[in-house]
Amino acid sequence: MGPAEASGNLVSLDGISVWLSGHEVLRDVSFSVRPGEFTGLIGSNGAGKTTILRVILGLQEPTAGRVLVKGKAGARHNRSVGYVPQKVLIDPDLPLRARDVVGLGLDGHRFGLSTSSGVRRRRIEEMLGAVDAAGFADSRMGNLSGGEQQRVLIAHALIGQPELLLLDEPLANLDIASGHEIVELMRRVATEHHVAVLLSAHDMNPLLPAMERVVYVAAGRAASGTVDEVVRSEVLSELYGHPVTVLRVEGRILVVAGSHDQTEILASAPHWLERT
């Protein structure tokens, strides 16, 4: 039994700080992800979400602190972590089908001649099916819609059989329906393949049905726990360094600046809150 199993954590960040060109992007960030868990990494644009993901991937060296992946330091190029970056621009002129992208996820890092065996083809086929992408497996990647591309990229990351999948703002460029489909897909995949998911988003509401834990990032600092533990006025006010209020309206969560009484806001602005 290795140290990872001993602590029970797949990934743990301990006091991570990152300085980028004279700015402190992350300050003393600590949290951990357990196997098979669905975690939301929530924060507004520029809060430091992508930097956290890059630290876990080993693409960004932390200025201070320690990151352990499966109990080991130096996470760089750990095959047990899959990654889907935020901005993936695929040129429509590129002759590359969805199945080729998934194939690159399987053995794209290997030099040498490809063995185009039946096993390889079957695994690609299976993975395309698992993300509901079988219907456009032979379409050119650059001609697919944003939601379809997102599915193919998830399959690309999943086929390497990671234990943790990092997704950077997968919902950012999608309409609401496709966003829900992706979240639902991720929840299903996480259970079926027993993969932990760390998914970043600026709005936590689409994730609420799937999210088991949340890491809330604001101004380079982070708080983690269950949604009920973290998304509270006191905790977030502390994190932002100024008063904020958490409102729960019809199953949705809103974070607004300033200290308010929930009933007072609801009374003063019912017309817009009801509609959001």
Partner: peptide, 11 residues
Amino acid sequence: RTATGQDRMAR
């Protein structure tokens, strides 16, 4: 140089 300077500052 600035990268190492930040390093020192942060530590």
